[in-house]
Design a protein around this nucleic acid. Structure first.
Lengths: 193, 193
DNA sequence: TGTACATCAGTGAACGCGCGTTCACTGATGTAC
DNA sequence: TGTACATCAGTGAACGCGCGTTCACTGATGTAC
């Protein structure tokens, strides 16, 4: 039953992509290897031909998940009118669509709490993805020393994450809507140049 | 083996307090009823004399956890010099101690992601606690229409939550320290009056 | 106030189930000649 | 290029374990008289 190298690569990618989706929807602890592999049309034993253990998958999920968010930031900025790049990123991140589709969205609000409890391997993968995301925001922030721009990006990014997290946790649609709206306005007024 | 009403009440409180602590440290899914009850010197069967099911406990944990954070906010403000109340709350929330002791800290960064996936019962408890927390911040925000003060409190609160979440997830101590410092400075400059 | 009985907090065995991981096996792929 | 053999992606049974919940039971507490 051995498969070609190319096919193994494809299978590997499919496992990671399905894991990113499922982890965001159900949490890391909420997803079992057997169910994950079933969704990829494989049996659970095969998992260990691709990953040393579940923890190694979690690390890859961090990388993949944060890279996806990075792509979304780049796309939002590209499609925005000149000067409106940062507002476009903020509007995308704090949209009702993003709030209502955690399985398709950023891993930071969905998995951040769990990741803090995981191994150094996982947290290092997270840290690297976070730093790249930060650099993606820097070009759109007010002129100044690079360090000041990074500082601003850090404040903005954690604000976005917290706002989305809380907008999802809360059970009152009007309140949730208000949280998104208020935070969009706050970050656009504070950081848009 | 029946116990007095007062003793049942005391037991109930002990279960909830131990659950708040364990949930913050290990996540909701990371804590089992048996282990929880063992820490309270009871057997797992007795759990159901106090709670319909685990979900009912989670709802109580939300209430208790957010009430604790509310108390901390009140205390921080009381102990602060006049005019420095908001800075004191921000400094407390974004302290290295708070980051390093999630078991003793706010439930929003630790449990927020999981709570978003829980029942209406749990999310309603969370929503009520969140609203009370918000009102605790309002008095310390810039004068203006009550709605504007609430808006500012919402932006501040989600920023605090996101910053603590990320400062814990990241694996680089210098970066984590910088995240706390930058966010403290940002929120104090933006909101302190 | 004292007695008889119902209530029920807590015990501990048992339920079915899913978890992460291991392992002997299969047969197609990759490689050495 | 063709053949012989080693490799290894994926299978599926099995491992020990912990999960949430139920339930018959116990004996002290609460209550009705």
């Amino acid at each position: 039953m051995r498969r070609s190298k190319a096919e193994k690569q494809r299978t590997h990618t499919r496992i990671v992509q399905e894991a990113v989706r499922q982890f965001r929807a159900e949490g890391i602890q909420g997803v079992g290897i057997a169910e994950l592999m079933r969704q990829v049309d494989l049996t659970h034993g095969g998992f260990y031909a691709h990953f040393k253990n579940k923890e190694a998958l979690v690390a890859e999920v961090c990388r993949e998940g944060l890279a996806e968010t990075e792509d979304y930031f780049v796309q939002a900025a590209q499609q925005a009118a000149p000067g409106a790049e940062l507002a476009a990123i903020i509007d995308f991140y704090l949209s009702a669509y993003h709030r209502d589709h955690p399985a398709l969205g950023c891993v930071m609000p969905t998995l951040g709490g769990e990741i803090a409890r995981h191994s150094a391997e996982v947290r290092t993968a997270f840290t690297e993805g976070y730093q790249r995301l930060l650099q993606q925001l820097v070009p759109w922030l007010a002129n100044g020393a690079p360090e000041e721009q990074e500082d601003a990006a850090m404040a903005l990014l954690s604000g976005l994450v917290g706002a989305l997290l809380l907008a999802r946790a809360v059970n009152d649609p009007a309140l949730s809507e208000r949280m998104l709206r208020v935070n969009r306005a706050f970050y656009e007024q504070t950081f848009a140049r």
